[in-house]
Design a protein around this nucleic acid. Structure first.
Lengths: 231, 231
DNA sequence: GCGACTTTGTGCGTCGGTTCACAAAGGGAT
DNA sequence: ATCCCTTTGTGAACCGACGCACAAAGTCGC
């Protein structure tokens, strides 16, 4: 299903890995623009973004041919092109569901709303917090979910609920027509095709770090003696 | 440098992609254990974790041969094996640097400390918050960074500082001997080899969602009609 | 004790992504 | 106007990861 022709790539089909890096390039570029830098080479931009320069050039080549050989890329122009490609020239109404510690932090997080995004609604089930004003926004009751989504044109929902509530809220959000979800709850959400879920899981990140940390510790103590291990 | 023999894989060399999924399996398994499930098939566990069953079996096979053909995996035993592999049988002291909205949320986040992790220190530069008690922990001044890390045996640092301070704090943390960092600041940290940095970037996740959202919108409106665009 | 059934562990083809290395393209100096 | 120098854009080899499909292995019922 939805097989791709494969030999000829869809001209607008930007690889997922590239999409994930474009925001990185954008951030580096806006920093440069603010410092008054007019043009930049792939080498310099790659260094600033922490990637390989060949990768950067290939990534940018998927958007079009926006560089000038022998010179580099015009910073302002590239900022515009990447912004447009990422859909940041329009602004997106974001709703945050779950106003616990994390939801509150997200609502107040400045860089979050930086470019193209606007927190348009806060929702929670706890009567204790409903009606409160956080980051200049009133907290609505979760019963209003569907109405709020429609009325304020919310197209991206951030889930910061307890794990137990996440799937249920997710279902309602999807039923209300939302197709982009950023999930902070530690559960695997199941959604129909066509709905994009991205997951941020602090606990998993820590566990991955612990794995590598343990590995290093093992290598140091038992390593040199029984120097087996990948040799 | 550090070339791998490649044909014969290091027996302890677990693929990075696998490591990233182990915490997912672990979470599903602990849930099952709590519900009193004794054994589970790769099919069921895979469904619970939201992955393909072949992938799950291959992942687990990297840890050893812990299943029984015709039966499945013993839940408790597998929990132990994965925990051990991830290094969760010991506990890790974590320091959170930057006690703004996000740092505060992290300090209070329950699931964060779930298994094997313990928030051992909070640090900040702002005299206003230094001395406060958050989540039962005193906030120390950033000047104490090196001393606190040594004294409390911190091996993982969470950076929740403003972007401008992140690299500087990172350098100090690394100089103090820490080799595992979880970075929430929207900057590309540069660290020496051997230091593991994982990055959580809310803004980037949103931008990726916006890209796909715009794509869907394009496809619906202009897609079928003027399907040209770069053709 | 044996046969049928279930489920694991894995060999192998495939695919997306990364990197190298270079030809093509443009700018600036003379 | 021409040549040299810089930097882009990309062909092609390489590499890890994914998923199919199946043989090996072990259990349960009779």
């Amino acid at each position: 299903m939805s097989r791709r022709p494969s030999p000829t790539r869809d001209p607008r089909g930007i690889p997922e890995a590239t999409v994930a890096r474009l925001p990185l390039y954008l951030r580096a570029l806006t920093g440069m623009a603010e410092r008054g830098i007019a043009t930049v080479s792939s080498e310099d931009l790659a260094t600033a973004a922490g990637v390989n320069s060949a990768k950067l050039r290939k990534d940018l080549s998927h958007l079009g041919s926006y560089g000038t050989r022998g010179v580099g890329y015009e910073v302002e122009y590239l900022v515009y092109q990447i912004s447009r490609e990422l859909g940041l020239t329009q602004d997106w109404a974001v709703a945050i569901v779950g106003v616990g510690n994390l939801g509150r932090a997200l609502a107040n997080y400045g860089g979050f709303v930086s470019r193209g995004f606007r927190v348009a609604a806060l929702l929670d089930a706890d009567p204790e917090v409903v009606g409160d004003t956080i980051a200049g926004l009133n907290v609505d009751h979760i019963d209003e979910l569907e109405a709020v989504i429609k009325r304020r044109g919310v197209s991206i929902v951030v889930l910061a609920t307890p794990a137990a509530a996440a799937q249920q809220v997710c279902d309602r959000v999807v039923a209300a027509g939302v197709t982009s979800i950023l999930n902070f709850a530690p559960v695997v959400l199941s959604v129909p095709d066509g709905v994009e879920v991205r997951k941020v899981d602090l606990s998993i990140e820590l566990q991955i770090l612990a794995f590598h940390e343990q590995r290093k510790a093992d290598r140091e103590s038992g390593g040199p003696v029984m120097a087996v291990e990948s040799q």
